[in-house]
């Protein structure tokens, strides 16, 4: 027996999927177009715009910077986020409620405001060079994911397990690494992935924090588009999409995607 679906509901569902997928189809189409300007449907098929990305050194350099910033920024956010999430969950009863909200602020504040305030405080205020400010900025941007996603894992962790380990003679810090961390592994990986993707796609923070000689890939895409309106932009976008899809595929194969939506 199959459930009956109202024809209108079915049509609506198809429209939603079209709406979600159409931009992707258009981008992929445009990236293959054998024209010097962005167009859809593609006129002729070519891969030369993909080749073009690798010929432009600015794309290579900024892609490298983007990966470095995403990995280091995400790593830094986890270094802060995991202990913070642990403290927020372990000592929930003794802590004020607003403390948890504090760590979500980077998501709540408009990104453009957040980016500008980082420029004022980190780059200008503290006089830090571009590269470290980028990493700090991205770490703060993705900190909410670290705290929230790791926190969600910890919320279902039974802290009496930790006490059991301690009672069996395991010192507290060692207990954290041998008992707590292995049990929130999925949460830490999920946080890393969400944070990494957010960081690598970020424009609004980076636009304030990039500077002479150092830029990230999304900023370079914008800059390139202002000068050349050619399909290179579309092909870079496709590559970025493929990176995201690749990461998701790894997640699906190792942990299953459901744990991202849990």
């Amino acid at each position: 027996m199959t459930a009956r679906i109202h024809p209108l509901l079915g049509a609506l569902a198809i429209l939603v999927f079209l709406f979600l997928l159409a931009p992707l189809v258009i981008i992929i189409g445009a990236s293959l177009s054998n024209t010097t300007y962005l167009t859809f449907p593609p006129q002729g098929l070519t891969l030369r715009w993909f080749a073009n990305i690798f010929e432009i050194s600015a794309f290579r350099n900024t892609a490298l910077t983007s990966f470095q910033v995403a990995i280091l920024g995400t790593g830094l956010s986890l270094l802060i986020g995991i202990p913070a999430a642990y403290a927020l969950n372990r000592y929930r009863i003794g802590l004020p409620k607003w403390l948890g909200t504090l760590f979500v602020l980077p998501i709540l504040v408009p990104e453009i405001v957040f980016g500008f305030s980082l420029l004022k405080s980190v780059t200008i205020g503290m006089g830090l060079p571009v590269y470290p400010s980028l990493i700090i900025g991205h770490a703060l941007l993705v900190l909410p994911y670290s705290v929230r996603v790791v926190g969600a894992s910890l919320a279902s962790f039974d802290f009496s397990v930790e006490e059991a380990a301690i009672s069996l003679g395991c010192p507290p810090l060692k207990t954290f690494f041998t008992v707590v961390l292995p049990n929130i592994r999925a949460g830490v990986i999920a946080a890393f992935i969400l944070a990494f993707i957010t960081s690598i796609n970020d424009v609004s923070i980076s636009v304030f924090l990039t500077g002479p000689g150092i830029s990230t890939l999304p900023i370079q895409i914008l800059a390139h588009m202002e000068q050349f309106f050619d399909p290179t932009i579309a092909s870079v976008s496709v590559l970025l999409m493929l990176v995201t899809v690749g990461v998701m595929a790894i997640v699906e194969m190792t942990l299953g995607l459901t744990f991202l939506t849990k």
């Binding site: 397990v161 009672s167 010192p171």
Partner: peptide
């Protein structure tokens, strides 16, 4: 004495086994 140095066997209500 810190808890880990007390050498006491504990049995919990919710078992508290190491899930991993």
């Amino acid at each position: 004495l810190p808890a880990h140095a007390r050498d006491i066997g504990l049995v919990f209500q919710n078992y508290a086994l190491f899930p991993h």
